[in-house]
């Protein structure tokens, strides 16, 4: 008697039985307090695998930007000893990361106790002195962002950072590609404040097309969420959306809308200085050119600040996937 067909039949039968039970045991798709990424990952093994792969790819991008030279954060003890990092202190909203407090994983000769082993490692590993180092063209990492968003469409930093890399290129073609990437990300993550905010920022800040920015920023602001329900990445995305919404209304001369948007934003982020100024000084800043310049500068500074927070937030986003790398990664990006 052939046992193989029976065994296959049993397997198929148990599979069907398991499918029937699935609806009883499956985690709800939209669980309060969890974003789409988390629910997706917790629902399927494949999801977890994809998350791991995208997280790994995310880490590799940093490595490729340093042409394979592995970097690490200075330890607390090293900071106390006054050891300086080897970064270039790159700033601005399009800076990929602030690496002023990082050093190479392979220590320099003067800081290595291993003698010839250290010399050999510096000769065999991708090692170079990185003081004031520059990065490889971030565009070289673009395929990786493309890949990680393909593998795991819920990996939001893949979409937003990929677009930021494209945004560093000031050409219209590159900006359009960045916008396309974000729109694609939005299709997969329709309720992501980060992607909506980034889309709005692309139109407002880079294309200076405030009218086109508005729908995305309004959509972000209209999301039925409370700030305390969002993770740190998305909360910052939402705050950014309110800021850019206010700026866009101002640029379009819609002071009333700006005032109302600022008021709404303050409902979620009551301590944000920019929203406070927009709400309090609305009539005044439209009449004073100096104030106008001041607020632009404020927003720009906020964006810088936000960007560093944003970088930090990637770490937190990443934290959702992989606790081990959180600290290191959070500071790098």
């Amino acid at each position: 008697m052939k046992t193989a067909p029976i065994a296959i039949g049993l397997l198929a039968g148990s599979g069907l039985f398991a499918s029937a039970l699935r609806s009883e045991v499956e985690v709800p798709k939209h669980h309060a307090g969890l974003n789409a990424h988390e629910t997706h990952a917790s629902a399927t093994l494949l999801g977890q695998f994809r998350t791991s792969v995208s997280s790994w790819l995310w880490l590799r991008t940093d490595l490729y930007l340093h042409n394979g030279v592995e970097m690490r954060q200075l330890t607390e003890a090293e900071r106390k000893r006054g050891i300086a990092g080897v970064g270039n202190g790159e700033h601005g909203q399009d800076a990929l990361h602030d690496d002023s407090s990082i050093v190479t994983v392979v220590p320099s000769k003067e800081r290595d106790f291993r003698g010839v082993f250290g010399d050999i490692e510096r000769a065999t590993k991708a090692y170079m002195r990185m003081e004031g180092h520059s990065h490889n063209d971030p565009k070289s990492a673009l395929p990786l962002f493309r890949l990680m968003t393909w593998i795991d469409p819920q990996f939001i930093p893949g979409w937003t950072t990929g677009a930021t890399v494209l945004g560093r290129e000031r050409s219209d073609a590159a900006l359009d590609m960045g916008i396309e990437l974000l729109k694609e990300g939005l299709e997969h993550n329709p309720n992501s404040p980060s992607i909506l905010s980034e889309l709005g920022r692309f139109y407002a800040s880079k294309k200076r097309d405030f009218a086109k920015a508005l729908p995305y920023l309004r959509r972000a602001a209209d999301l039925p969420v409370r700030a305390d329900q969002l993770d740190e990445v998305e909360a910052d995305g939402l705050l950014s959306a309110y800021r850019w919404l206010c700026l866009s209304y101002r640029e379009l001369g819609r002071s009333g809308d700006m005032y109302r948007a600022a008021q709404r934003g303050l409902g979620l982020f009551p301590d944000d200085p920019l929203l406070l100024r927009c709400a309090a000084d609305t009539p005044y800043i439209f009449t004073e050119k100096g104030q106008r310049e001041w607020i632009e500068q404020s927003i720009s500074e906020s964006e810088d600040h936000e960007h560093h927070g944003h970088d930090h937030d990637h770490g937190h986003e990443h934290h959702d996937h992989d606790h081990d790398h959180d600290h290191d990664h959070g500071h790098k990006h």
């Binding site: 490595l63 490729y64 042409n67 394979g68 592995e70 106790f113 291993r114 082993f117 050999i120 490692e121 065999t124 590993k125 991708a126 490889n136």
Partner: peptide, 22 residues
């Protein structure tokens, strides 16, 4: 510890191979 541990890492020049112009 460093002297008795096998230094497997030294035999792997993969990062130099993978990245450009090493």
């Amino acid at each position: 510890i460093n002297s008795i541990l096998p230094q497997f890492g030294l035999f792997d020049i993969g990062p130099r191979v993978a990245n450009e112009n090493w």
